[in-house]
Amino acid sequence: MAKSQSDLPSRVLALGATSAIAIAVLRQLAVKGASFYLVARNGEKIDTVAADLRVRGASAVHTRVLDLDNTALHPQMLADSAAALGTIDLALIAHGVLGEQADAQTDYSHAEAVLRTNLLSPVSLITWLANYFEAAHKGTLAVISSVAGDRGRKSNYVYGASKGGLNVFLDGVRNRIDRSGVQVLTIKPGFVSTPMTAHLPQNALFAHPNAIADGILKAIAKRKDVVYVPAFWGLIMFVVRSVPGSIFKKMNM
């Protein structure tokens, strides 16, 4: 059955909690009195986010400074978060890096770094969280992927591959644990005005993080599997995916 908006998750684990998109989501939950376990790699930023959520109405905010590339520390950190929150209603995975496609084309170590942060780190987190939620027979695992994962393009295929890999992994996890009553949500934003894209020329397709947050919370309430935010990206990506490979390979995208 569809959850209503008033039935928002109230115990929230946020991984990459200093992401602008994550902050927009967390604020809306804070207003309703949610409690949080925030994980991010920068102590000063995480304190600022924690203060903001507290002022807006969060009932409790725990913080943990951790570079999420460090997968060896994930299980302990996740167990600590579950203990601190009591139980996890929603785990939001938001961290990511855009990388430099040009560097990744010539330097494998750069490509590897992008894949580590955007794919391997989430895979490690999801492995633990899937088992946790499966055993709990409830909860929402929401992961921010990207429209870039829908098809490889010459301008950003390393980033795209990290997100595409993530999508496939999430499809499989969903196929495994949805039947236990766990929602696995793949979030595919289009262009969003955040620090990650601050250096890019902005155009009319760029959305505000608040609009993305609205879409994410709606998708959680409706227990969706995959959501494009804003929704029109679903149509754009349908077209992009539909272009025959023989033509696609000649296009400049």
């Binding site: 602008a20 600022t48 986010v49 203060a51 903001d52 002022v55 807006r56 620090p195």
Partner: peptide
């Protein structure tokens, strides 16, 4: 982008924000 509320005292109404 410096848009965070940092502290609020509901008794005195003193607000600290970015």
């Amino acid at each position: 982008g410096l848009d965070r509320l940092l502290q609020f005292d509901p008794l005195t109404g003193v607000l600290r924000c970015e």
